[in-house]
Amino acid sequence: MLSSFLAFGLVGAATAQNYWFSFGDSYTQTGFLTNETLPVPGNPFGNPVYPGYTATGGANWLDFDTTTYNNSLVLTYNYAYGGATIDSGLVAPFEPTVLSVTDQVNQFLDTAASKPAETPWTSANSLFSIWIGINDLGNSYYLSDNRTSFDTTLLNAEFALIQKLYDVGARNFLFLNVPPTDRSPLMLSQDAQAQAMLKANILDFNSQSAEFTKNFQASNSGVTTFLWDANAAFTTILDDPTAYGFVDAVSYGTNVGDFWINTLHTTSPANVYWAEGVADVLSGSIW
Rank of each mutant, 00 (worst) to 15 (best):
S4Y: 00
Q17Y: 00
S22Y: 02
F23P: 01
S26K: 10
T37G: 01
V40Q: 15
N43F: 01
T54H: 12
G57C: 07
F64S: 10
T67R: 14
S72D: 12
Y79F: 15
A80V: 03
Y81E: 07
G82P: 01
G89S: 13
F94W: 08
P96V: 03
V98G: 07
V101K: 04
L109S: 08
T119A: 14
S123P: 04
S126G: 05
G133W: 02
D145Y: 02
D151W: 00
L154S: 12
E158I: 00
A160S: 15
V168W: 00
P179Q: 08
P185H: 02
L186Y: 13
L186N: 11
A192M: 08
A192C: 00
A194K: 07
M197F: 05
M197G: 15
K199H: 09
K199E: 11
S209G: 02
A210D: 09
T213E: 07
N215Y: 06
S219Q: 11
S221P: 04
L227Y: 06
L227K: 13
W228G: 05
A230R: 10
D240C: 07
A243D: 03
Y244P: 04
S251H: 02
T254H: 03
F259D: 00
W260K: 11
A270Y: 11
V272H: 08
G284T: 03
S285K: 04
W287T: 07
